[in-house]
Amino acid sequence: METSCRLGGARALFSRTMSPLAVRLLLLVCLVLPLYGVEKVRNRGYRKDPDADKVRERQDDHFYGSCLQGPGGTPGRDGNPGANGIPGTPGIPGRDGLKGEKGECVNEIFEKPWRPNYKQCAWNSLNYGIDLGKIADCTFTKLRSDSALRVLFSGSLRLKCKSACCQRWYFTFNGAECTGPLPVESIIYLDQGSPELNSTINIHRTSSVEGLCEGVKAGLVDVAVWVGTCADYPRGDASTGWNSVSRIIIEELPK
Rank of each mutant, 00 (worst) to 15 (best):
T3L: 10
L7N: 15
G8Y: 09
F14C: 10
S15Y: 03
T17Q: 15
M18W: 06
P20S: 09
A22W: 12
L28Q: 08
V29H: 04
V32L: 15
L33W: 05
Y36C: 11
Y36F: 13
V38F: 13
K40F: 09
Y46E: 10
D51I: 10
R56A: 12
Q59Y: 14
H62Y: 11
F63N: 13
R77T: 13
G85V: 06
P90S: 08
G91I: 00
I92T: 05
P93A: 01
K102E: 01
E104C: 08
W114H: 10
I130M: 10
I130G: 10
K134R: 15
A136S: 08
L143I: 15
L143V: 14
S147F: 00
L149V: 01
V151G: 00
F153E: 02
R158D: 05
L159A: 03
S163L: 08
C166L: 03
Q167C: 09
F173R: 14
C178F: 00
P181L: 02
L182M: 07
P183Q: 00
D191Y: 08
Q192I: 03
S194Q: 13
S199D: 15
E214M: 04
G215C: 01
A218W: 05
A218H: 08
V221A: 04
D222Y: 06
V227Y: 02
T229H: 12
Y233D: 09
P234F: 01
W242G: 09
V245M: 07
R247I: 04
I248F: 00
